[in-house]
């Protein structure tokens, strides 16, 4: 139970960084932390104590009951790829913003209002 709790603490830390921090790069790091917390959550959902990797070593005696859930791990792999793409595009936008505005501070990046 305590690991789920810690996972949510990590999630909230990332959310805190996004809401409070004023540096674009720190916001991106906050988003990455939230993504990792979510991945950890999925791994915890599929975890079983003392279980093995979900690979069938013999077809005559399969033991699916002593394996961790592979679906959750597959979802984590998909989510890592998506997270990579989002982080990639955010970093590129942040670099371009730095070129145009000369700063990473969101208080100075404020041409749009309302």
């Amino acid at each position: 139970m305590v690991e789920y709790f810690l996972c949510m603490v990590l999630f909230c830390l990332g959310l805190y960084a996004i809401l409070i921090k004023r540096n674009l790069i720190k916001i991106i790091i906050g988003l990455a932390i939230m993504e990792y917390a979510m991945n950890l959550f999925f791994i915890l959902l599929g975890y079983k104590k003392g279980a093995t990797v979900p690979i069938f070593s013999s077809l005559t005696e399969p033991h699916p009951e002593v394996m961790v859930d592979p679906v959750a791990q597959a979802m984590v792999v998909a989510n890592v790829v998506i997270g990579l793409a989002v982080t990639f595009i955010l970093v590129i936008i942040a670099i371009l913003i730095y070129e145009k505005y000369g700063t990473f501070d969101i208080r100075d990046v404020n041409k749009l209002k309302g």
Partner: peptide
């Protein structure tokens, strides 16, 4: 500049 700023806001909020 405006497009980059709005795109960053859009991307972070939606993610």
């Amino acid at each position: 500049p405006e497009a980059l700023e709005s795109s960053f806001k859009y991307a972070v909020l939606n993610s």
